[in-house]
Amino acid sequence: MNIVVLVKQVPDSGAERTLKSDDWTVDRASASNVINEMDEYAIEEALRITEAQGGEVTILTVGPDRATESIRKALSMGPNGAVHVVDDAIAGSDAVQTSAVIAAALNTLEWDLVLAGAEATDGRVQVVPHMIAERLGVPALTGARKLTVDGDTRTIERQTDEGYEVVQATGKAVVSVWDTINEPRYPSFKGIMAAKKKPVKSLSLADLGVAADAVGGANARTTVLAGQPRPPRQSGTRVPDEGEGGVRLVEFLAVEKFV
């Protein structure tokens, strides 16, 4: 069972994030960049499957040079190697274009399963796994809180607003996971040392046979026109509870017509 895990480097969601005012793309240079959190759960799940059933785990990242840090961090958890698609022409790509690049890269690899996070914390578009499945013509099992791989059958519990759905596919598939699926391991010291020597293959668009004018902000099907900080919320009245806090609260709700 060979598994490719899609790992995106994103600006830390715990720090301030901004858009560049020239092209309205994410200011990644000044941000503190980390592995997209959900992707760590995908890595963990892939490792658990291959540890139990054999096979290799490969990390696949599309991103600028500096994404190398995240790739090494991902490798320190245990995967065998990585593929890094890096090309200046990709900058500013939208989800449709990004998925084309990822799909082309997957076509150069041998895999049985692709694992991804359910959502990236920067774009939050939640669509890349289905887009890749659409392009590759394989089923997508998305939003998993549980994954069972039994021979050729993959079954997930897909989290929904009402509860969950049991969804099944056979053969090659793309699976995306939420943080409810497992608890990712911390890299060991040995893992961190080993990661430095693991193979990271760098691929350009030319290597993938993707035309440079099919990607990038200038050729995207969506254009960001402007971005501006949302005026911060003002803090309002703060009342200490001196025994009447609940009543005061309801008085406020009544004035605002909620009660």
Partner: peptide
């Protein structure tokens, strides 16, 4: 509205 509600973006499709 993006980035934890901190930024407002206008965009269009081509």
């Amino acid at each position: 509205v993006v980035f934890a509600g901190s930024t407002i973006v206008t965009a269009k499709a081509n």
